[in-house]
Nucleic acid binder design. Structure first.
Lengths: 271, 271
DNA sequence: TTGCTCCTCACGTCACGTGAGGTGGC
DNA sequence: TTGCTCCTCACGTCACGTGAGGTGGC
């Protein structure tokens, strides 16, 4: 038999807070050796220090109080091992989750670009002449050619040149619901258009992940798939239409482009 | 603008529960596009799906709601990165903790024995003749010799032989407070002793970690230290006195032992 | 009397989950 | 009328931490 000590002294001896000791008493995990019937003071025996340390150890190992209780009341070593093993499995599971989380966060901060031909880009705000329509996905090619012609004509009528390659904005619904808004645009410094079917707009700035598709639009859906998978695995997709930029065209012959930049809006985390 | 959907449909579209969506509304993290003034029904716009997915993504990455809110309202990429980086640091910290925990649990289930000359042993219950006294640590050697003589005499008086090597039990207080109970014992099949200073006792079974100290008790405190460190790093110390077993003695000359097994009580988890 | 330790409620934490009890539109 | 969805409380989770308000012994 050791000597009787107050909860404060026992707290110092075991590195368990008084609140924790009272809590363990309430739950029947660690009973004081003696309780003063008059004022309710708890008194612990110094021989209980080791037992308290065991509790502290397993709590520090993340084991729940019911499990610690079961562990300490189990006489059989097999039962004890089962409890510890089950807890180990949970902690291994948590370890895996945390590792995945840390990996994903690290990649958010410095995305691995080499694995795909994907680069991150800030698209600045631009003024452009645009032609928009709500269309079905099936008629996109026909609409695309007509809109290209419309923009080319507008430029020639006004006698100005484009400030960069043309592009398109495609609402997500166009792909998910096969029906949605499409916009073709050409950058220009003029803020009024000479034709009623063409309007001047300010296209907002946005952060995008870009994959360049080579050649005509033959097989571009596979490039879309590759970029979509990349963004969802390594980045965070953001709202807004998908952008395309049509590159490699000669002069004002917009239809002669040889490359398409597919620009997928992302939630930006890196400069 | 997309179309308006009910909370149930939006829940399906975002994989967020209705409860979570109401919670996010209460906290101002994700406001419905429209609320019916008559019945309080929430309606979301389909264009909010992407925003909701971003929230879901960061919640899945363990970020707190206040942090997610700050992240989404931050315009500045640097601010966003700071929030993510701070969260990453916390998750890395948690990763380290969980790794340590998993390592400690694995070691509990299969302790690494090779690193020290420590083995685990089940000491069975035995009957023994004992001599006990509450002594000071300083007088332990003198007491030890006297007690050894006492046990030897008792055996020779009764004309019996020991059933195994002699041993000792040393209360923890003897080391921590330099003052406590010490017991010397010799296993025997007789349950009564011939001498009043010697009593017959049943020593309880116990699980122990054992380190064998070679030679006399010269320098045994270093072996104690090594065993103590090992137990506290790899196992869980349990209550009860430290045991010693005195081995290598010739016949009934107990004092001629050449090895001491130091037996430290542990909370047993392995067979 | 002042300080100190002890006591017992009661509430807060965090992000929802789980009912209970009720309403509106088909 | 029955089913279905939606609503708003109110309470539970987990292991204590944080006071508030009060008591007993030096």
């Amino acid at each position: 038999m050791g000597s009787q000590v107050s909860i404060g002294d026992f707290s110092v001896m075991t590195s368990l807070s008084r609140k924790a000791l009272r809590h363990y008493h309430d739950l029947g995990l660690l009973e004081p050796a003696y309780i003063d019937a008059h004022n309710g003071y708890r008194f612990y025996d110094t021989t209980q220090v080791d037992h308290a340390q065991i509790i502290r150890r397993f709590r520090a190992l993340g084991m729940s109080i019911p499990d610690v209780k079961a562990l300490l009341s189990a006489e059989d070593t097999d039962v004890r091992n089962d409890i510890i093993t089950a807890h180990l499995r949970r902690m291994e599971q948590q370890l895996q989750t945390t590792m995945d989380t840390v990996g994903a966060l690290r990649e958010l901060l410095s995305p691995v670009r080499r694995s795909a031909n994907v680069e991150l880009r800030h698209e600045p705000e631009i003024t452009a002449w645009t032609i928009s329509a709500v269309i079905e996905h099936a008629e996109i090619d026909r609409w695309f050619c007509a809109a290209m012609r419309g923009l080319t004509q507008a430029l020639s009528i006004s006698g100005t040149v484009a400030q960069g390659p043309p592009g398109g904005l495609y609402a997500r619904e166009l792909f998910t619901d096969s029906y949605g808004e499409a916009t073709l645009f050409v950058p220009t410094s003029h803020d009024t258009s000479p034709v009623p079917s063409v309007s001047a707009q300010l296209l907002p700035a946005t952060e995008v992940a870009v994959l360049t598709h080579e050649g005509s639009h033959e097989g571009i859906d596979r490039s879309y798939g590759a970029l979509g998978i990349y963004v969802h695995e390594h980045l965070i997709s953001d709202e807004g239409p998908i952008r395309e930029r049509y590159l490699g065209g000669e002069g004002s012959d917009f239809a002669s482009f040889t490359r398409t930049d597919i620009c997928w809006p992302i939630f930006s985390t890196v400069c």
